[in-house]
């Protein structure tokens, strides 16, 4: 069961603004999904190694050789706020927390 305050915390971590209605609905929907998922927590998995990769590969390394870079114009082509100094953003730490 996911409480509303947990939903608010997770939404804040994920940088998702949720309206009251959305947050309540999210709590209900996620709780239902989690109820289903929870079943695996009762499995006996002692001593089982976690799988992060299904491929049996190691050391995919590349040589330290430079490739070309984009021009600043190319880099900034899709930017919402291109400036001479770079990608414009509101300064961190500004405004209401």
């Amino acid at each position: 069961m996911l409480e509303r305050h947990q939903v608010d915390h997770v939404a804040r971590l994920a940088r998702l603004e949720l309206s009251d209605v959305e947050a309540d609905r999210m709590a209900t929907e996620l709780s239902k999904i989690l109820d289903h998922i929870e079943a695996i927590r009762s499995l006996d998995l002692a001593g089982v190694q976690p799988t992060s990769h299904v491929v049996d590969l190691v050391n995919a390394l590349r040589a330290d050789a430079p490739h070309g870079s984009l021009t600043p114009e190319q880099a900034l082509a899709a930017a919402p706020e291109p400036t001479a100094a770079g990608f414009g953003v509101p300064s961190p730490g500004q405004g209401a927390e």
Partner: peptide, 13 residues
């Protein structure tokens, strides 16, 4: 984009 950074993030997403 004219608000603070976190609001920009959260509303954009």
């Amino acid at each position: 984009g004219d608000t603070d950074l976190d609001t920009m993030y959260s509303r954009t997403r």
